[in-house]
Amino acid sequence: MPLWMHIMPELTLVQAINQALDQEMERDERVVILGEDVGHNGGVFRVTEGLHAKHGGDRVVDTPLDESGIMGTAIGLAIAGMRPVPEIQFEGFLGPAYDQLVNHGGRMRTRTRGAVTVPLTVRVPVGGGIHAPECHSDSPEAIYTHSPGIKVVMPSTPYDAKGLLLASIRDPDPVLFFEPKRVYRSFKEEVPEDDYTVEIGTAKVVSEGDDITVVTWGAPVFQCLNAMDELPEDVSVELIDLRTCWPIDVDTIAESVEKTGRCVIVHEAPLTAGLGAEISSLIQERCFLHLQAPVQRVAGFDTIMPYYKLEMDYLPEAPRIQKGIEECLAY
C-alpha cells in the first residue's frame, strides 16, 4: 500500500459529497446549488453544510418549496451553459418535478437535435432504512431509468460518491444522482482530497467469486455483504455494485454470470417492473447458455413502503438475500 493511502482522511458519504461539491464550486464558477433549505440550514441531511457560508447566497440558493420550479429553473440554468446541482429533499418529492425532468430535461438534446443540452445534476436522497414513512423511503430509480435522456447514478460508498458526483457535474447530459440515506453516516472510508472521477456506467466488482453472481446497488450492497457472511465458507460469491442504474454496465454483469452461471439481483424498489427485471432480461439475452439456474430477484414488495414497524420486513435484508442465494445455488 503506498504511503499516501495512510494519510487520506476518512469521510462519510455525506462528507464525501460535501467535499466534491465544495471542490467543484471552487474549480468551476458555473456550478450553482439550489434547493429547499440547502443554504442557511445546510440541507435536510446537512449535505451542503458550510457551502453557503463559503460560496455565498448567489451560488448556494435557498429555494421555496416548489420542486417543479426548482427543477425547471435548474434546467433553464443548464441550457444557458451553467452547471446547476439542485437538491430535491426526498425521492418522493420528485413527483412534482417529474414533468420538468422527464419532459424537458431528458428530451432537450433530442428535441433540438443537439443544439441545446442540459448539463444538470439532480441530487436526491433515496431509499429506506431510516424509519421514515412512504414518500420519504422509496426507490424510484427504475422510473427514471425508463425515461430516455437521463442518466441514473446511485453510489454506495463515500469514495464512489465523490468520484461519481464530480463525473456527473461534468457530464454533458442530465444525471439523477441518488444518495442512499441509509449509508449517509453509516461508515467512513478513505477518500482522496485530490480531484478524481469514477466513470458513469461502470459497475464495480466488490468481491470476486466463482459460484454465484449477486448484482445490487445503493444501500443493499451492505445487506448483501452481511448475507455473504452467513453463507458456508465454501460458497464463493461475486458481488457487483452496479453504481450506475443507467446506462447499465451489462458487460461486467455478463462476464461474471458467464463465469458463475447463477445470478441473484437485489434491490429495495418493488419487485415488479423493477430494475431487476431489466437486468434479468439482459442476462438471458447475453448468457443464456451459461445459466445453470433461473435468475433470482430479491426485492421490495409490490406494496407501498410501510411505516417503520414493518420497514425491515419490506426491505431486502440479509436473511432474505441469503435465502435467495441459497435457492439459486440449490436449483
Partner: peptide
C-alpha cells in the same frame, strides 16, 4: 393501522381526509 405515521392522520368517520406528506399536494 400504524402504516401512515405522524404525517398521515386519517379519520373517515370524522371527515378527516388526511395529513399529506408532499407539500402543497
Amino acid at each position: 393501522k400504524g402504516k401512515g405515521g405522524s404525517m398521515h392522520m386519517f379519520d373517515r368517520p370524522n371527515h378527516l381526509y388526511g395529513g399529506h406528506g408532499i407539500v402543497g399536494a
